[in-house]
Design a protein around this nucleic acid. Structure first.
Lengths: 119, 119
DNA sequence: AATTTATATGAATGTATGCTCATATAGTCA
DNA sequence: TGACTATATGAGCATACATTCATATAAATT
């Protein structure tokens, strides 16, 4: 407990809990990486792409047709997912087949599904 | 395979994969709910709050002190998390103690941790 | 080499959102 | 009741970002 107002200068602070939290805290780089993957999955287009890629690899055109979106939009989002190594691709002639490239994605999707189907 | 250009009018579409994806597709409401939780966890402030609330309940001031943020900012984010039922609170006098309110959050955090600690 | 196909990418734009600042409210204590 | 504490909330601003449109590139085909 300290003195004065605004921004925690005079509020009741439970030092024990705060220092306990500090000990268990994620490193900045860990927060950053975790955030990026959650943020990636927090967009409907990207989430649907990742969900669709479970089980089968698909080309940009497949995904665009499936989602009723432009190929450009899908390509942009696949780029985002690629940068995060969440997806990877394989070329066959002119076609690029995309697949999931991170085992954790499937795990996260599974937990999310349990969440949305009543939680 | 169809005819003409742009936005999947003339591209190679693997009908089988597309229809297969359609069958396994999440319902719109499921996509929406899953997206919201991922988006919620995709912000550094909120992620750190959720992480901190694992194990111990904390008041707004504790969290603000812990994160070095304004109480207002924390309160705004707690509101977001509350709306999604990811956290809940308990009043003790003037102090509101926040806690996690969704078992899936811990699961998601655990998977995310595995992800960031090399995956 | 020229065309066509499948995809990538850059710029522009509109919208979403995280924070700040100011103010409001619920509970406590004098 | 009035002052104070802990938190909530609304408006405003500045940034982030998802999509579109136009254009570029890589492989295949002629």
């Amino acid at each position: 407990m300290r003195k004065r107002a605004d921004t925690c200068e005079s509020r009741v602070i439970h030092e024990g809990r705060v220092s306990e939290a500090r000990e268990k805290a994620l490193a900045p780089v860990e927060v950053d990486r975790a955030c990026r993957i959650f943020k990636a999955m927090g967009d409907p287009t990207r989430l649907k792409i990742l969900w669709a890629l479970q089980g089968a690899e698909m080309c940009v055109c497949d995904i665009a047709a499936y989602l009723g979106a432009t190929e450009s939009a899908i390509s942009h989002q696949l780029r985002n997912l690629r940068v995060l190594d969440l997806v990877a691709n394989r070329r066959e002639g002119t076609i690029l087949y995309y697949r999931l490239n991170d085992d954790h994605v499937s795990d996260l999707l599974k937990v999310a599904l349990e969440h949305v189907r009543e939680g």
